[in-house]
């Protein structure tokens, strides 16, 4: 298969970027999207040009490192997968594919397609944890948790922190990410204890970092590689409002 790639190139955070066109030829349909970029990069190296920088690591859809806005979709045209799980057979032979970095004020570009997502770390540092010390905990089975609650907590915990939600949201809102963590812990008795404090602290940090206001378009859940539901956003809203009203 052959493709024309329109890729965003940007030297560093300070420089202005622009699209550049590349051709990749004779790519097998079983090649993954990132392997296709590997092939392009290997060609570029041989030509003495700087390869395209892009984030990736586990290539199994779990580490959340890969990003890329491909033809208008965060993580490409398929549903429920990360960019590393996209295969070239999903594109038309001869297609022109536009590849952009995440675009969000809170995710500044570092180079080419690589962005800085440390804002997500900062939000979690604000309260995305249960304050327990190592070793001062009860037995794992001391508190039974209804299976449905544990399952729902797990649904939310599936978030890989890739940033697709904020990147795809027209408002640059990180609500799905924040909600996933708040909701996951809120469904467990262990997390309930400091639920109110957590919701307030994480929302405050999210606002402080310049993420936008959620308008419930649902684009985040549509593009989320882990299909996290906006029902968790509703729960975050509940948690937050209840906490505020108690203040």
């Amino acid at each position: 298969m052959n493709f024309t790639l329109k890729i965003w190139r940007q030297k560093d955070a300070q420089s202005k970027g622009a699209f550049k066109e590349y051709k990749v030829e004779n790519v097998s349909s079983d090649t993954s999207f990132l392997e296709m970029l590997d092939i392009l990069n290997n060609d570029l190296v041989h030509k003495g040009e700087e390869p395209v920088a892009f984030d990736h690591d586990c290539r199994e859809g779990i580490c959340g490192m890969c990003s890329l806005h491909i033809d208008g979709h965060a993580h490409g045209p398929s549903q429920a997968v990360t960019t590393c799980q996209i295969y070239m057979r999903q594109f038309k032979d001869g297609a022109t594919i536009t590849i952009e970095p995440w675009r969000s004020a809170a995710f500044p570009v570092i180079k080419d397609l690589v962005v800085n997502r440390s804002a997500y770390d900062q939000i979690l540092q604000a309260g995305g944890f249960v304050s327990v010390r190592t070793n001062s905990v009860p037995d794992g089975n001391a508190i039974p948790i209804p299976k449905a609650d544990a399952d729902e907590s797990m649904d939310a915990a599936a978030c890989v922190g890739c940033g697709a939600c904020a990147a795809t949201c027209k408002n640059g809102s990180a609500m799905l990410f924040v909600a996933a963590r708040v909701s996951s812990l809120a469904k467990l008795p262990q997390g309930r204890v400091e639920g109110a404090r957590r919701a307030k602290a994480m929302v405050a940090k999210m606002d402080e970092l310049g993420f936008g206001n959620c308008t419930n378009t649902g684009a985040c859940q549509a593009e989320c590689p882990k299909q996290i539901s906006i029902a968790h956003i509703a729960r975050l809203n509940r948690e937050f409002l209840a906490a505020k009203l108690k203040d």
Binding site: F129, V130, V132, T134, N135, V137, P138, D139, G140, I143, P144, I145, P146, K147, A150, D151, S153, M154, A157, S184, L185, K187, L188, Q190, G191
Partner: peptide, 13 residues
């Protein structure tokens, strides 16, 4: 296991 449960790891139940 005890530690992780206390941290809010959603183990299968």
């Amino acid at each position: 296991i005890d530690q992780c449960v206390a941290q809010g790891v959603p183990f299968a139940r």
